[in-house]
């Protein structure tokens, strides 16, 4: 157990080192990387590298040429929107995915099950940006019931906090729906599969024989044991969802870090792109690390090992 934890922590340290080094060396190696503003000095690379790490520790990520501001400040302005988008979608797709997966397993082979299965398999085949575009066309332009871009209505001063909140939720709805629908399939499927396996087990039959209610069995016996694979999976797809914001925010011009990525790419604003890259890489690592810990807490077998 001790050595297992140590190899894991060493692994995380190596990955952090790789991410930071990649960020340093890429602009110096690649033919397309404009080096202006990055290597103005004639110092040897080793000294530049140390300088870079020291700057990084101070939160100095360079100067964004397109936003004309420090990259750090630009990131700080955008992070809240990305967190709002990822947070709300994650909450919805996990709850709904697990719930519907359980329902599907319970009704195996019936109309509800087959319908849900087809729906979620098809939705999982849509790239997030394409589904987002379809939503903009239908709900944004045809029906005109949702805003087509941004996170807030510009130049409108709501006097009440409630009005502001409603406006923010109104803007959040379509991007969050897009991210939720393209991510929910995986959670739904793994819940359905592990529930189907568990519903075959002896102790479920025993519980049925005892005359316990069907929903009680699903909730207390089956779902509880199906949780472990689900948690592993949440960590696995968290990376997919977090990077999914790059595409969704681009389509909806939602002012988070993901939009910064595509803006920076099209404007060749490399310092900004690198700053956003660090944000995404570390956010995913943090989620993976947390899920690892939760898994260890929940699974008694990991501890005994």
């Amino acid at each position: 157990m001790q050595t297992k934890i140590i190899t894991k922590i060493v692994g995380y340290i190596i990955i952090i080192f790789i991410i930071i080094s990649l960020n340093f060396f890429l602009p110096r190696m690649m033919p397309a990387g404009p080096l202006s503003g990055l290597t103005s000095s004639t110092q040897p690379v080793s000294e530049q590298y140390i300088m870079y790490i020291v700057d990084l520790m101070h939160g100095d990520l360079g100067w964004s040429t397109t936003k004309n501001a420090p990259v750090w400040d630009v990131l700080m302005r955008s992070i809240k929107w990305t967190l709002l988008l990822v947070g709300s979608s994650t909450a919805i797709y996990i709850t709904l995915g697990i719930l519907l997966g359980a329902v599907s397993a319970w009704k195996k082979g019936k109309k509800t099950d087959v319908g849900l299965l087809i729906l979620f398999i098809s939705l999982a085949s849509f790239p997030p940006f394409f589904l987002g575009m379809l939503f903009i066309i239908y709900f944004g332009w045809r029906l005109d019931i949702f805003p087509r871009f941004g996170a807030q209505t510009l130049y409108i001063d709501y006097s009440t906090a409630f009005g502001t909140l409603l406006d923010i939720l109104h803007h959040l709805f379509l991007p969050a729906l897009t991210l939720t629908l393209t991510s929910i399939g995986v959670i739904y499927l793994i819940t359905r599969n592990s529930m189907l396996n568990i519903l075959d087990e002896e102790y479920i039959r025993t519980a049925r024989a005892k005359g316990l209610g069907e929903w009680y069995i699903i909730r207390r016996h089956a779902l509880k044991n199906a949780m472990l694979p689900i948690i592993t999976l949440v960590a696995l797809i968290a990376g997919l969802v977090i990077t999914g914001t790059i595409f969704v925010e681009t389509v909806f011009a939602y002012p988070g870090v993901g939009l910064l990525v595509s803006d920076a790419i099209s404007a060749h604003d490399y310092p900004l792109l690198q700053g956003a890259f660090l944000f995404f890489a570390f956010a995913i690592l943090a989620v993976n690390f947390t899920a690892d810990r939760i898994y260890e807490l929940l699974d008694p077998r990991v501890k005994e090992d």
């Binding site: 890429l26 397309a32 990376g239 690198q274 995404f280």
Partner: peptide
């Protein structure tokens, strides 16, 4: 297997994006 674990934990999509952005498309 440690190398494999490393590549499984690494945030691959951001890394793929940043490398692709710095290479000639």
């Amino acid at each position: 297997m440690r190398l494999t674990d490393l590549f499984l934990t690494i945030p691959k999509l951001p890394i793929i994006i940043i490398i692709a952005a710095f290479m000639l498309p």
